[in-house]
Design a binder for these strands. Structure first.
Lengths: 120, 120
DNA sequence: TTAGTACTTAGATGGCTGTCAAGCTAGACG
DNA sequence: CGTCTAGCTTGACAGCCATCTAAGTACTAA
């Protein structure tokens, strides 16, 4: 099962018990967000001008080696939370707002209505 | 800094870069949700009749010892996601929807407006 | 009080994970 | 070509974590 797909079809947590399969996929996404460095990376990328950020912009913020930042970006990428693209020398990352919105919807009841409102 | 407090005052991820302090507190909550068993526990409790569930109801669902379930419930409790109360022989847990709503708001832009709408 | 049920805590253990150093690949520029 | 910069991968290691067994606590019932 694809990750974003799994998240997309999950009902709100309060609506019905999560299936074992869905819980595994959902947990993978939350686990990816369960690290301070990765959360900051996510918000740095999301809030950066143009909606994207170069890895060099991100590395300077932390007191960590490039290898570690690269590792965290990979975790976020494999969770479907960000996507990366090489343009010349640099690699740019951007968040995937659709997945964030779906995650957000899973956390609160009545999300279907709210999602429709957001789509408008 | 209190956990729920930290989550409450976090702006949406896309609005501005998360501070190092906020990211640590937020990550603790997401980390608690980053496990399939804990996610299922959360949804079992949230979707249970009356908004609360006894530990014995939860233990039967999984192929795990009571000690392990107890451990996961403790993690969820320390993250501020659930609260437990003993009534007689049994212990009942319920979710704290306020924290879930705030978490949800952190994930999407324009949450302040949407929160106001939800509150009505 | 004794026995029994419902959790919780403590300790142990195997597996996972965040981090770094070192090495590697991809592109830019002579 | 060679060299420089940006980023990724690998391998290693210390610390964390999910799980179990065994023991402890809290309440009920006879």
């Amino acid at each position: 099962m694809d990750l974003s797909e799994a998240v997309a079809c999950c009902s709100p947590l309060v609506a019905e018990p999560l299936s074992a399969e869905h819980s595994v996929e959902l947990a993978r996404v939350f686990k990816a967000m369960g690290d301070p460095v990765r959360l900051r990376l996510l918000s740095l990328i999301a809030s950066h001008a143009g909606g994207e950020a170069c890895v060099c912009d991100l590395t300077d913020v932390f007191d960590l080696t490039g290898a570690t930042i690269s590792h965290h970006l990979k975790v976020l990428r494999e969770a479907g939370l960000i996507s990366g693209e090489r343009r010349g020398t640099w690699v740019y990352y951007r968040v995937r707002p659709d997945l964030l919105a779906r995650l957000s919807a899973v956390l609160v009841p009545g999300s279907a209505i709210r999602d429709a409102a957001v789509a408008r």
